[in-house]
Nucleic acid binder design. Sequence first.
DNA 1: TTTGAAATTAGGAATTACTCCTATATATTA
DNA 2: TAATATATAGGAGTAATTCCTAATTTCAAA
Lengths: 143, 143
Amino acid sequence: MEIDLKYLEEVFHKHNLKITPQRIAIYKELVNSKEHPSAMIIYERIKKIYPNVSLDTVNRTLLTFSEIGLVRIVEGRGDPKRFDPNLRQHHHFRCIKCGEIYDFYSEEYDSLDIPSELKKKFIITSKRVNLEGICDRCRAKRG
Amino acid sequence: MEIDLKYLEEVFHKHNLKITPQRIAIYKELVNSKEHPSAMIIYERIKKIYPNVSLDTVNRTLLTFSEIGLVRIVEGRGDPKRFDPNLRQHHHFRCIKCGEIYDFYSEEYDSLDIPSELKKKFIITSKRVNLEGICDRCRAKRG
DNA sequence: TTTGAAATTAGGAATTACTCCTATATATTA
DNA sequence: TAATATATAGGAGTAATTCCTAATTTCAAA
């Protein structure tokens, strides 16, 4: 998928971030990933194009992106952080066997009300339904 | 809070786990925690009672507990694993400033339907709504 | 009860996933 | 184009977790 470079550069400008080839490459790689990759996975792929990019840069960049809201860190179970460039409101199904995360969309879930006792106490900035279970592939493997 | 030792021993038996003082202490400590603690935090507390318990045992034990469904690993953002002994269906609010996680209950959320295209493809074993935002304490701090 | 096999533990080493440090290089603005 | 503020690479350092192994403990059967 071609990314909208202009949009990306605008976002960088808005947050006073310099436009560097590494940042663009990292963002491209993440957008074109389907599996909510970790920094290490992005790093391995980027290395093929920029052989001496450093893992630290990939990590730092992905964290910067998440700070400015360009990507999100997926909610996981304490293993390596995984990143998600999908900013459209969506929800996750996670396979407890293989760890794969599948995005899905649901208007019903999007329009869930926040319980009023929480609304009074907290400022709510994000809402997501996380489902877990066994995906079709893993189910097939074990009959 | 007093834990139900009998219940705990039954669970251990059911899964062919031996009843050891460490396992009981670790479970007690977790149940009596209110902040979804990490293995390290549990370890520090247990050490006061069993000075030469090892961190590995705490980690291993908590993972074992999560495998048999006695506790759950809280969904987080890649930092140390945190554990939750609350098996009653509930949902989480996580403060993006301080990281604190608050359990809450909602019948509306509990009774959410699973989208049919997911139900067809996947076996769903768990469902949770995760809210994020800023908690009352952090809000107070910054006026 | 005692005994013995199998599971579990402590302690340290190893690994993994970051995160920090700093000299060099690069992007932007004047 | 030059100045300067950022960002990067590479390596060191740190945190969280997992692995390894010898010693210990649990528990079931005698």
